[in-house]
């Protein structure tokens, strides 16, 4: 899976959010770091067409986000920072099946896929639970199961470990390493960044560093610490 950013500029209300961005992403695990408000979330929202650039072109597996956003969204699974925004229905099974409605019209097959996705993350026991009774970590896993159920070809995570305690954060890291799909992960978690194949550092809307995790985290500590 190849993601290409070609001469990207993003502006909001006259303010530059991302500028002069050209790069190709094909590694299995790509981390994105940067100070708050630097444009990291904007960067990943460009990948599935949630945001469109002012100028330039983004292609995911050869598909242009301006022209073929529906096809791209079927390929790209997006896990948001706050699972409460991602989980629409009050019961776990109901929410995951809702996300599959367009892809799998047959209710029994939808149900089966929902069970498989929960089982993949070891949270099958949560299927009948109300979202309101789940812990933050469990909600994060349910949100991830909802995305995995759609069998995406690539995963995008927006600060997935922010709301997790150390135990759940470690568990998330294990799940992440077991997932077969390529993944892009925005995070401030330097430990997590060390497990990546490539790390981008975005500062004030510009790609400030692009390299292997050890160099990227060292650069980040020196310039943004």
């Amino acid at each position: 899976m190849l993601i290409e950013f070609k001469n990207i500029f993003v502006e909001r209300e006259g303010r530059l959010i991302l500028g002069d961005l050209s790069l190709s992403l094909s590694e299995r695990r790509i981390g994105i770091m940067g100070p708050n408000g630097s444009g990291k979330s904007t960067f990943i929202r460009l990948i599935n067409g949630l945001l469109l650039p002012k100028t330039g072109q983004i292609c995911v597996d050869g598909l242009d986000t301006r022209l073929e956003v529906e096809k791209i969204r079927r390929k790209v699974g997006f896990v948001f920072q706050n699972p409460d925004n991602q989980i629409v229905f009050p019961i776990v099974s109901e929410d995951i099946e809702f996300g599959l409605k367009r892809r799998i019209p047959e209710p029994k097959m939808r149900h089966q896929r929902m069970l498989e996705a929960l089982d993949q993350l070891g949270v099958l026991h949560l299927q009948d639970r109300s979202i309101h009774t789940l812990s933050g970590g469990e909600r994060q896993l349910v949100a991830l199961a909802g995305v995995l159920a759609t069998t995406p070809e690539i995963l995008v995570f927006d600060e997935p470990t922010t709301q997790l305690d150390l135990r759940l954060r470690n568990r998330f890291e294990q799940h992440l390493s077991a997932l077969p799909q390529p993944a892009l992960i925005v995070s401030h978690d330097l430990e997590l960044m060390r497990t990546m194949d490539r790390v981008l550092v975005i500062v004030e809307g510009r790609l400030a560093f692009d390299g292997v995790p050890a160099d990227a985290t060292a650069w980040y500590r020196t310039h943004c610490g």
């Binding site: 949630l50 969204r73 079927r74 790209v76 997006f78 925004n85 629409v88 996300g99």
Partner: peptide, 14 residues
Amino acid sequence: RRAQDIADALDARQ
């Protein structure tokens, strides 16, 4: 803000 976040999440789940 919440409505916008939920709309984004629904769009992403297309």
